[in-house]
């Protein structure tokens, strides 16, 4: 009998639920590796996974993955190719859902993973886009995963690495970006959708144990809350059993030592 769950397990479950059956998913690193496998094994058996190293998978990896480039991720793949082939699917609008993380996000879903402080004299250099900027630009739906802290959910990020809706409204389209953009923001405290008109993040649900006051305090912009806001549906015991099989040492979901 499984009882209790970690924030990581809840976020993986929330992220997995955003994957629809049949989706072509740009998987990425860390939590999404587990979320993709969980979705495949539950409600989205026909989801198809893309990894920017050039792997295309119709089945979850046979082994736990630290990174998408672990050699077991090759075994049983549908195709082993190069980064640009995967980007070709993205560029032609063939990717339904992409996952990205980052250091900061604003209310329009613009994500910073480049610099803290000004670019010309940064207080910190962050790892950078990797493929995140490409995914945010070109995927039909974008799911952003973020630790929910006031210094991360900011009114304006220091550097827009991965474009969301830019300044809101129609700005994304006006910049020449394809339609698409952020669909969901999953944080350690809640789940946000984006208003179809203003493009602002709107709280859809708060995680069990989190209160609206706590969310307001941890959000750098005036929090908008959906009229029908509710509690995030927790992972089922079947979900938890699968997550613990997919991530046996809790590396991505229970803060396990690497």
């Amino acid at each position: 009998m499984v009882s209790g769950f970690t924030p990581g397990e809840l976020m993986v479950t929330a992220a997995a639920r955003e994957i629809r059956d049949g989706d072509v998913v740009f998987v990425g690193m860390r939590l999404p590796l587990v979320a993709f496998s969980l979705a495949k094994l539950t409600h989205a058996p026909n989801a198809f996974g893309l990894f920017e190293n050039g792997l295309l998978r119709a089945s979850p990896s046979p082994e736990f993955l630290y990174t998408m480039s672990d050699t077991p991720n090759i075994v049983g793949a549908s195709m082993c190719t190069s980064l640009l082939n995967v980007m070709a699917l993205l560029g032609r609008g063939r990717v339904d859902l992409g996952f990205i993380g980052g250091a900061e996000v604003d209310r329009y879903g613009n994500v910073n993973s480049s610099y803290i402080g000004p670019r010309q004299r940064p207080r910190a250099k962050l790892p950078g886009s990797g493929g995140a900027g490409d995914i945010a630009s070109l995927a039909k739906r974008l799911l952003i995963i973020m630790a929910h802290e006031r210094h991360r959910l900011r009114t304006a990020v220091d550097y827009v690495t991965s474009p969301g809706f830019l300044g809101g409204g129609a700005q994304r389209e006006q910049a020449g970006l394809p339609a698409g953009g952020p669909k969901t923001l999953v944080t350690t405290l809640g789940v946000f959708d984006f208003d179809p008109r203003t493009r602002e993040a709107v709280l859809r649900s708060y995680h069990p144990g989190a209160s609206l006051d706590e969310l307001r305090a941890a959000t750098g912009w005036p929090l908008r809350v959906a009229a029908d806001v509710g509690e995030t549906v927790p992972p089922s015991s079947a979900d938890l059993t699968l997550i613990r099989r997919l991530d046996p040492d809790g590396i991505w979901t229970r803060g396990g030592a690497r």
């Binding site: 920017e52 980007m87 950078g128 900027g133 490409d134 020449g176 970006l177």
Partner: peptide
């Protein structure tokens, strides 16, 4: 970005001077 560098390498390999992308717009 990953796509940016990969495209730049492809342009280098093909001997063309530059290559367009739809990434980076608005950033």
């Amino acid at each position: 970005s990953n796509q940016g560098i990969a495209l730049m390498l492809m342009a280098g390999a093909l001997g063309i001077p530059f290559i367009p992308t739809r990434s980076f717009l608005g950033t």
